[in-house]
Amino acid sequence: MLKLLNKIRKTGIVTEPVDRSAELDALGLEVKSIIDKHYAGSFAIRAVDAGSCNACELEIHALNNPLYDIERFGVHFVASPRHADALLVTGPVSCHMSAALLRVWRAVPEPKWLIAMGDCAIDGGEFAGSYAVMDGVNTLLKADVLIPGCPPTPALILRAVLQLLQGMHSR
């Protein structure tokens, strides 16, 4: 147990500013204030893999590692769509997942937002044109934000989520 505590002490706080630019840091703080004001301090995202290769999921996981620690801005990932403010969809939407995706979207209470993450979710990406995929989220639903990349880096995802919030409430 002492070793464990010592390791924690030695590691210290590794969480870093969003970017080395002051602009994103400022954005982070602004978004935090939006979340505090409009979402009682917490903005909930439900991630849905609709046929991704799993690379996008790993980068979403990275957002929760101590270096990014997205929760410090009040953004957190939830287990149920009923708890979600936004749905974050990855993958080209495989035909076998499209029914489940529609159901989960209907389960998210209004008001709600849809984020398409990764090249696949935007237009099918590397799998576009296949008999087995729908060529992106927009063939079934209407995405509010697109995050390009294969996969998008954690910094890009973070930036997109922050910008979504800023766009919704800064007016």
Binding site: D49, G51, S94, C95, H96, A100, S130, Y131, A132, V133
Partner: peptide, 11 residues
């Protein structure tokens, strides 16, 4: 399984 079948062999 099979939910994320994307037709990789075909494409």
């Amino acid at each position: 399984l099979g939910y994320v079948h994307k037709g990789i062999e075909k494409i």
